[in-house]
Amino acid sequence: MSMTQAKSARHIEPLLWSLFGAGGMAIAFLMPAVILIVGLLVPMGILPAEVLSYERLSAFFLESWFGRLCAFVIIVPALWGSIHRVYHGMHDLQIHAGTGIKVFCYGSVLVLTIATVALVL
């Protein structure tokens, strides 16, 4: 690494790496239960449809602060963690993406993050 690089401004990589870590944690702890309920138990009729009724979920995720926080924690870190791994996984598949793809990947997730906050507020 040259001196100019070493001295250059702060890097964004540590931030992206922390978000990736948070995503790995959130996916490991929350996604098994979420996928089980939303993707399997309710669609297959093992849990009754009322558990995901509009009245119940809109009151929880859109009107209570704990519910808003839950919606954010379930969706947002998972997106950051996944996009980080998709972006770096491309390298493993011999796709050497440039800055444009990188900005598109992380930029899209940034837009979705802001949109998630806007949706629950």
Binding site: I27, M31, V34, I35, V38, G39, F61, A71, I74, I75, A78, L79, G81, S82, I83, V86, G89, L112, A115, T116, L119, V120
Partner: peptide, 14 residues
Amino acid sequence: VFNLVYGLNLFAGL
């Protein structure tokens, strides 16, 4: 890849 697509699915749900 699965978690990314499922995350997008959950965002669409919200």
